[in-house]
Design a protein around this nucleic acid. Sequence first.
DNA 1: GGCCAATTATTGGTTGACCAAAAATCATAA
DNA 2: TTATGATTTTTGGTCAACCAATAATTGGCC
Lengths: 242, 242
Amino acid sequence: MLDNLQKIKIDKPVDKIIGQIKSLISNGEIKPGDKLPSERALADHLGVGRSHVREAILKLEFYGILKTYPQNGTFVSGIGIVALEELISDVLNLEEHDFKSLVETRVLLEKQAAYLAAKRRTSEDIASISNALSAYEKKTKTGQQAVEEDLLFHIKIAEASKNNVLKSLMMIITPDIVKNYINLKVCDDLNFNKTLQEHQAILESIINQDPEAASAAMAIHLKDVSEFSESVKDLQYEMIKK
Amino acid sequence: MLDNLQKIKIDKPVDKIIGQIKSLISNGEIKPGDKLPSERALADHLGVGRSHVREAILKLEFYGILKTYPQNGTFVSGIGIVALEELISDVLNLEEHDFKSLVETRVLLEKQAAYLAAKRRTSEDIASISNALSAYEKKTKTGQQAVEEDLLFHIKIAEASKNNVLKSLMMIITPDIVKNYINLKVCDDLNFNKTLQEHQAILESIINQDPEAASAAMAIHLKDVSEFSESVKDLQYEMIKK
DNA sequence: GGCCAATTATTGGTTGACCAAAAATCATAA
DNA sequence: TTATGATTTTTGGTCAACCAATAATTGGCC
């Protein structure tokens, strides 16, 4: 009976405006590099409040599509019409990250982070990673969950990689991962001791400055959850999203 | 004489507020999962307008750190204090992406995209990638730059990978890449015919469903720019940022 | 005493007005 | 005719007030 309630698509005003801006570009009214109409004019033209326009511009600014100069105007990035349209479309469809893609990408990033960390780690890095690991061990020894400490261990490795883009991207997908972990109750299945040993193996490889081993150890560590994600696939679509 | 003007650090009100929210968490006044004080209360407490608080919340929401429920309140993600602090710090320092990290990460993502595209591509994917390649060829044959068409080729491969997270991350770093390409004038050095051949090699591997070959072909394609990034390193810091 | 409805207070959402800075315009003088 | 400086206009930035929906409170009823 309630089945047909699932597909409600709330078109937030912001997304509508972003769509409108996109069509402005598609219709050739705005070319890459051009100045966008003033916020006022846009709000008037689209029949919405300026706040909405502002929010939309803000969002597109995060993704580098627009750039605002105070008291001057908002300008479109100069990367080309078609690419611009693709980018904007992507921003609009940003929510649909499925768990499988999420995990698949996480594995990729984490492996590379471990690889680079092994190559570039300083003694300070080793200290912080060790600290994170100790905190994790201490927490799990008392039987508690240690999601935070687990995360921190991985973050410290990302820092040791000396690649801030890699770290930023990991940060970006982390909340999604955590949300899915909680929803799918992945944590319950994990054996803390096993996780601890795997963490130690990763740390050891990083200490030994053995990139390949570090990457491999990270792959093993993430293998469980990776396989798990294969099995759930579309299960998440049946869950109630809050 | 103008040297000391370089270090101007414009502390936008938004970043200040994000910092304040972070310290609220650090001081234990707000715990993960808690409800944030109302926008009004926050604005009053911090002595700023509500718009600024709103903008800060919006930004933190993009990164999954906060979640706003209309007419109810804004809640902090439940991932843990330390991890939360790390995440927020990262949001604040998000701008400092250096070119080397950018390229290094791009290579990683693109190689994986090509790998997965070769595994999962449909005939439709091949068609769109081919189209993008044709457009690139046509444009370069006339001697023009074809940055957009180049980008589009890579985007279509990302789409063929069927991993939307991977695609999103590539989209996120693309503007940064483009900006740096333009600033550092990488494009000028590239040989269009060589690029075209490399693109064709990638496409061929994807058509043949040979993931390893596709990944390798992409690596070769990106090798030039990768090496270039090694040589510039800190050169960018001397440039004027606009 | 316990339950339910009307009321009140609080929340984020939305709007329009005002501000200062930058750009564009125009008038004036060389 | 050109250069220059005052003036007007336009811009995004900021703010305070209002709106509708929700949650908390209160009062009355059973």
